[in-house]
Design a protein around this nucleic acid. Structure first.
Lengths: 253, 253
DNA sequence: CCGGCGGGTTGATCCGGATCAAGGCGGGCG
DNA sequence: CGCCCGCCTTGATCCGGATCAACCCGCCGG
């Protein structure tokens, strides 16, 4: 299940995606890019970066990257695929905390408790960069740019957590959700108007605190209003401006 | 309004609380305690700590500690009093993001955007320790314990932000809110069963995504069930176990 | 002294979205 | 092939909490 992986990056064992020739482009769009560049690309600290980062994967849909209660040792940057984080209370009810796209980082909320407070589950076949946190901290102490980068990552996640605060209508929440995804895809160099929803309607509903039926209805209504085109999980935003307008109370700025 | 304050701490100008003889006890319970201790109490880096931290206040109820859009230069630890943070959207609707008690830290969500993304408003007469963030970062680079402490603070706040995610009944949310406050007061050395609610019913309602009337009704019901005693804003928890039970779906563990 | 006002409580009514129910579609497997 | 199962959609009904409304209380200013 949790596939172990040789640490070095030189031979790069059977790994169809992590190695598909777009390495530099990926690193250029990853949330860690400036940290990696500061740490490794110029100076001869490259060697340390290599023992710091480890490529792991693949994880297939439904597999856990980490589980609630696992001891915290590393954070993960998504290289490809999609992840949901979720908490499960003792009655077995699930609460989806967030979705993470390529270039984004999971595990930051485990620093304080020193154990992961939630599960991370792959929604797609996914690959990751695994950053040993002790090594990362040590590096941050010596390279201010890395430290600054970590602070910013943490702070950024704080900001997005307060996005879904507030009581808003189902339409507002759905519109904001779609525009948020669009913005995040755009930030990583993907299309902002056509993308695949890796998560089920049920996951979206849970994340937005709605019923799955409501998600379905709202999407149908958006379609009938020509705001979107949607077939299964393939989505096209036909009127991003109108959607942004709808979700403005939830969106940054 | 935003009272300027001489930076040194030697003469300590008219400032009835920051200087009331309980300095060491306060610092012992503050969220920064280990950072301050690591930074200053042993080594002769005390001098740097002094230029790092500045006592500010008083702010009276309704005054702003910072405002949305202010450039980010410092974070603040509450010395005494209570603060709410809130966002106001362009239609003028307020969203309360959190309440901060003595010993807790505000402003962390401003690191990434480099401008405060929300207002901080005093609910009581309040005093603060103001920590220059550039100085703090520099110190963190040299003292790993300080860096670790900052990472933990950020990560902790991430965890509490996901507390109010999830859709739960008004009763669950209110019970969890009261037990959360109780736990935080206890962590700072105050009574966990009797305390003052510095915020209005409207602020509580807004924070919990309820109507003020609902908050009032739920509190009345809790009183009639002998879960609490409440007169105005003075609160006593008569049956903390039952309240914890009620709010368990929202509470850590 | 009075009047206004913000905050709090309580009752009556309404509505958005949850829940219940039924059926469609597609993919994996015996 | 045919069945089952997970996911999705759509319709009907129900309910928790929002909203509207009335009133109380304490405080402040004139």
């Amino acid at each position: 299940m949790d596939s172990k992986h040789p640490a070095g990056r030189l031979p790069e064992p059977p790994n169809p995606i992590a190695d598909d020739g777009d390495e530099t482009h990926f690193c250029g769009t990853c949330a860690f890019s400036s940290a990696c560049i500061a740490a490794g690309y110029n100076k001869p600290e490259l060697a340390q970066l290599q023992c710091l980062v480890e490529h792991v994967g693949p994880f297939r849909a439904g597999e856990h990257i980490f589980r609630t209660g696992d001891p915290f040792r590393a954070i993960f940057a998504v290289r490809s695929g999609t992840v949901k984080t979720r908490m499960v209370d003792k009655e077995g009810r699930e609460q989806v905390l967030g979705f993470y796209l390529p270039g984004e980082v999971i595990g930051l909320n485990a620093i304080y408790p020193e154990h992961f407070p939630c599960d991370a589950v792959a929604l797609d076949t996914s690959f990751f960069c695994r950053f040993s946190f002790p090594a990362m901290s040590a590096l941050a102490s010596r390279i201010p740019a890395v430290q600054k980068h970590l602070f910013r990552l943490l702070s950024k996640e704080l900001g997005s957590a307060s996005l879904l605060a507030g009581d808003h209508s189902a339409d507002e929440r759905m519109a904001a959700f779609l525009m948020d995804l669009a913005g995040r895809y755009a930030a990583r160099g993907f299309s902002a108007t056509r993308f695949h929803l890796s998560m089920s309607r049920g996951d979206i509903a849970n994340y937005l605190r709605l019923a799955a039926e409501t998600v379905s209805r709202v999407l149908s209504r958006f379609r009938s209003q020509n705001l979107i085109r949607i077939e299964g999980r393939e989505l096209e935003l036909l009127n991003p401006d109108a959607l942004r307008q709808l979700g403005q109370a939830l969106l940054p700025d």
